[in-house]
Design a protein around this nucleic acid. Sequence first.
DNA 1: TCCAACTTACTTACCGGTCGGTAAGTATTC
DNA 2: GAATACTTACCGACCGGTAAGTAAGTTGGA
Lengths: 204, 204
Amino acid sequence: MEATSDRQIGALRDTRQQILDVARYLFSDCSYLGVSMKDISQRLGITKAALYYHFSSKRDIYVTVLDEVLVDLRAGLCTERLDEPAEEQLRRMVKDYMEFGMRERNLVNALMLKLSPAETELRQFVVSSREQLIELFRPAIEGVFALRRSRPGVDGRLLATMLVAMMDGLVLEHSYFKKALDPDAVSGQIVSVLGLDAAPSVSA
Amino acid sequence: MEATSDRQIGALRDTRQQILDVARYLFSDCSYLGVSMKDISQRLGITKAALYYHFSSKRDIYVTVLDEVLVDLRAGLCTERLDEPAEEQLRRMVKDYMEFGMRERNLVNALMLKLSPAETELRQFVVSSREQLIELFRPAIEGVFALRRSRPGVDGRLLATMLVAMMDGLVLEHSYFKKALDPDAVSGQIVSVLGLDAAPSVSA
DNA sequence: TCCAACTTACTTACCGGTCGGTAAGTATTC
DNA sequence: GAATACTTACCGACCGGTAAGTAAGTTGGA
């Protein structure tokens, strides 16, 4: 019973996960609307109908992909290091996010997909994931300013919002123009431009 | 012949321009792939085939729309005022761009559309329009820093790139989350965050 | 051990609808 | 009659999704 169970679960995960992997890549590259179920199935060498054994609809695949994307992103950004200076933490997070965004565009793409009014669940998911993202960066930003003891009234949330917006915009540019972007260099530039770097670069 | 010519040109412009207006709105709202020729024609109360009298293809409509968008944007941003202080000029341009972006998303959307390798013309158009946009903001940014006589080596182009990226990111958020954004307030926040405002807000 | 029944993971063939686009036809104007 | 601005009817291809069928594996009872 044990061996059987393993085999079944293993096989199921194998194809199902492969579907998600391929869909994740294609949705990122060509957007949700630009990818058909046939595209996904062909890439896997299975039939379109086989996708429906594992998922109830194209939307089901999409929502599962987005779930996965968010889990991965959170995992990548939440690795707190207790002895890490605030500026370094922020810089690392920015770098991690840029690396992530340069590998795939599903989170940015999700903002572009026009949903029908009835699709409140997916909309709420995107809204929530966005909020979570901003909330990940906000304390890091506020940590930087706490160290500075300047501008205690700085709006960490506003800065986080703008930081995320900037990164998304840069991710968009990168993916379209195929610009070579070094995540390490660009993350330094980003925090510098926002005045969030370790060595202040602007004497106002 | 004169009256005929006027009537003909007038009628042609009327329907043709209406097609562009509707397409522009729908492409902005639902993206290129999310809009069908039937959507456009229905909205106008004409048949789909009538669209092909005026335009050779869906792509033709799209390219013409993007042309129009860029012309409008340039017109809106290029109104130089000779007695305008540099900071004010930049702030105004940011505000104008945010207002523009909040009304329509076609320029950002264009970055999301996956083009086939053969579509070099459209790709080049988007690349060029992006460059033009950044070049519009760069001198304004550099004007601000020239006044400050500080950091003469500041990379105006980098700042312009990041500024545009941030604005696009914010436009994306706004359109998805239906956040109420006051262009005047948010433009002030943007230039402030980037250290480009008239009253330095950070003493480093 | 064998086998029928069941389960799993697909495939084949099909569905209704939509997509961009086309050719012939039509009504109006000059 | 010619030109313009459409409409009607159609095309092949594609879309997401479904029902029936198939092959392989598993299991429990004889």
